[in-house]
Amino acid sequence: MSPSNFSIRPPAWEGLEPAIPGWEVASKDIAFQIAKVVGSEGKFWAAKFGDVVSDRMFRLDEPDGRKFIFKILEDSEVCQSEEAEKASAWLASNKVPVVVASGQYRLPSGEVIVKMPYLEGRRVGLAVDELFAFGVSLAKLHKALRNVPHRERWRLRTAQRLKALSKTRQYIVSSGVELGPYPQRLLNLANDAELDFERSQWFTQPLHGDVNPGNVLILNNTPVFMDFEDTAHSVLPVEYEVLFAIERFVLVRVDNDLEASRLGKAFLHGYRSQIKTELQSVYIEPVQVLRSLALRSLMVLVNGELSGSKVLESEWKKFFFLEKMSRYRAEVILNIFKD
């Protein structure tokens, strides 16, 4: 089987909890290159995740106190970044609180570097009022994205991506090929007829595409969204993103079932305070939707491995864990939607 022609983006961090980077002084060479290209001066820092110093993410502290983030993109990320800039710029022009890139440059090496403001925010907390506010903000984001000018092009791109992932799934089922650290578990999930990540009969619209705790900051008590790299292939049912948010902001962070249910309901009440007519289908089978999303992510990893990309074992484990969690915490998930 020939791998599909979309790239697998390296994870920003390993595991499910977003890493908060530390910073150490960047090498003089890379600092000089960036400063020369962007025409800025100041102190450059390299992001540090644990003991690993990034060679793709940097921070600039300018003499006047302003701070910026610079990300060096892989070739395969440039088109996604350009689409993300279009989405965030349009949303900002419509008064949606998002982070917008402030420039794109090319280094002497030919690599593209993106400049963004560095924001001193914090993550969404595990409190009823914050989860409610996050639900309100996500609903407002979804309302705005319904009218984004690029939605029909993105709809086509989404359909192509889903078709490619479905072909990958069919290949695993028909060939029985062994991939990843748990090939039998992968084959069992691919064979599970109850799992459907296409849901072609459901209403779809553009979504953020990766609403995880690392992509939402609280600034001045307002949730602010960033990193829209997945929006251009995320014209999908809103149920996907609502459940994804509950999974990442609540279920993986809260072990206590009663507390998880309380916080999940707070988020959902916030969302439904803005959008009252959607989410009918999510009440039917939320557990199966979450399991299907885990399978979809595993198919992305399969496609990456087939195309020769290095897939971290931690990435395989992450999505197998999420699929298992959806089954083991089914009662909690169902209770969140019981009103």
Rank of each mutant, 00 (worst) to 15 (best):
P3F: 08
I8G: 02
P11A: 08
W13V: 10
L16D: 05
L16R: 13
P18N: 11
P21Y: 13
E24R: 14
E24M: 10
V25Q: 02
A26I: 00
A31D: 02
A35E: 13
K36P: 06
K36M: 04
G39Q: 09
W45P: 06
W45A: 02
A47P: 08
F49M: 01
F49A: 03
F49R: 04
V52I: 05
M57W: 04
M57K: 14
F58L: 03
E62G: 08
D64K: 10
D64E: 05
D64M: 01
K71I: 03
E74R: 15
V78R: 05
K86S: 13
S93Y: 02
N94L: 01
V99T: 14
S102C: 13
S109M: 00
G110H: 00
K115C: 09
P117L: 11
Y118T: 03
E120W: 03
E120P: 04
V124T: 07
L126D: 06
L131I: 09
A133Q: 05
F134N: 14
S137K: 15
L141A: 09
R146A: 12
N147P: 10
E152H: 15
E152P: 15
R153W: 13
R155E: 14
Q160A: 06
L165K: 14
Y171T: 06
I172G: 06
V173N: 01
V177N: 01
G180C: 07
D196L: 03
F197N: 13
P206F: 06
P213L: 03
G214P: 11
V216E: 05
I218K: 10
N220C: 07
P223Q: 11
V224T: 09
F225P: 02
F228N: 10
A232S: 15
L236T: 10
P237S: 11
P237F: 04
V238R: 10
Y240S: 06
A245G: 03
V250C: 06
V250W: 00
L251R: 05
R253S: 02
D255P: 00
D257H: 05
A260T: 07
R262E: 03
L263S: 01
G270S: 11
G270I: 12
R272P: 00
I275H: 07
T277K: 13
S281T: 09
I284A: 11
E285C: 12
P286V: 09
Q288Y: 00
S292T: 06
L293M: 12
N303I: 04
G308E: 07
V311F: 02
V311M: 01
S314I: 07
M325L: 15
R329W: 15
A330S: 15
I333T: 06
